[in-house]
Computed example of a mutant assay.
Amino acid sequence: MQTVRQLADLREAIAAYRKAGERVALVPTMGALHAGHMALVEAAKRAADRVVVSIFVNPKQFGPNEDFSQYPRKELADSTMLSKAGVDLLWLPPVEVMYPEGFATNVSVSGVSETLDGAARPGHFDGVATVVSKLFNQVRPDTALFGEKDFQQLAVVRRMASDLDMGIDVVGVVTQRDDDGLALSSRNAYLMPEDRARAVALPRALGAAARTIEDGGDAQAALAQARDALAAAGFAVDYVELVDAETLGAPEKDRPGRLLAAARIGTTRLIDNIAVNLNKYG
């Protein structure tokens, strides 16, 4: 696996892939890799001839009171994991390469950014869209793979790539979970043992609400029950909402739905989501 930290070296490597007529897949990450990230890598290997993984802890998507300085950084372990998985190139840019002195551009995606995590974390999705647009321009992949766990992020990136005619196939990969159902996340490492045991209430509450809605039950009552279940487990709930899976707007009967939640247990904020069949909705 080739590891590069400077843009000129990255462009030289990508140019060689293109000269050989090879298809390129990008997996953007912030490191602290786990089985969820490796599922993205495996999907990328199936989709392209060459797999590029980026690791960059993006300061622009962290709020002033969030965990940027504490976010886990495991460069050596991550690099070893990616090399063993058959990744071709690891893109490890320093902050000064991504955001050189005088950097002044902000990318904002309206319509899918303002609600849910956008409301709870103002500016977060501008930071996501800005860094992903830079990664797309740097690597110029044919396809890019993102986990469905960050479902709103996936919607933001898809809208941006479409609106800006980037010509990149943005692919969502199903959420990877522990045996008890908790979605894999780099932030799970923050959980104290007792909080980890209680955290399983998050996927269970979403699952129960989804079953009620799919059976034609009252959606608002199901959402309220999910919030109550999370509170009873010790969570401070940011939101539990049912939305249209494409627009993230109001759900409609016979369209794909998505149930999304964010809640904090102890000092750790967790997010999760599941698909919901809305054939009996309303």
Results as ranks from 00 to 15, higher is better:
residue 167 G to H: 03
residue 190 Y to H: 11
residue 104 A to H: 07
residue 151 F to Y: 14
residue 249 G to W: 12
residue 167 G to W: 07
residue 3 T to H: 13
residue 27 V to H: 01
residue 67 D to T: 14
residue 29 T to L: 09
residue 123 G to F: 08
residue 136 F to P: 11
residue 147 G to R: 03
residue 254 D to G: 05
residue 98 M to V: 08
residue 90 L to F: 10
residue 216 G to K: 04
residue 135 L to V: 03
residue 193 P to C: 12
residue 176 Q to W: 13
residue 257 G to R: 00
residue 7 L to C: 02
residue 41 V to E: 13
residue 83 S to F: 08
residue 226 A to L: 06
residue 26 L to P: 12
residue 49 D to Q: 00
residue 173 V to G: 00
residue 5 R to K: 06
residue 202 L to S: 05
residue 178 D to C: 09
residue 130 T to F: 07
residue 158 R to D: 04
residue 85 A to I: 08
residue 202 L to N: 07
residue 180 D to V: 03
residue 8 A to I: 06
residue 149 K to A: 12
residue 229 A to H: 01
residue 123 G to P: 00
residue 34 H to Q: 03
residue 141 P to G: 00
residue 211 R to L: 10
residue 186 S to C: 09
residue 157 V to R: 07
residue 174 V to N: 13
residue 3 T to D: 07
residue 193 P to A: 12
residue 171 V to I: 10
residue 164 L to C: 08
residue 281 Y to A: 11
residue 174 V to Q: 14
residue 150 D to I: 06
residue 14 I to N: 03
residue 207 G to C: 05
residue 3 T to K: 13
residue 85 A to K: 02
residue 11 R to P: 01
residue 223 L to K: 03
residue 165 D to V: 02
residue 71 Y to H: 00
residue 250 A to R: 15
residue 137 N to K: 11
residue 89 L to V: 03
residue 139 V to F: 00
residue 33 L to R: 11
residue 186 S to M: 10
residue 65 N to E: 12
residue 188 N to Y: 11
residue 166 M to R: 15
residue 272 D to G: 11
residue 51 V to D: 12
residue 86 G to N: 03
residue 74 K to R: 15
residue 197 A to V: 02
residue 138 Q to D: 06
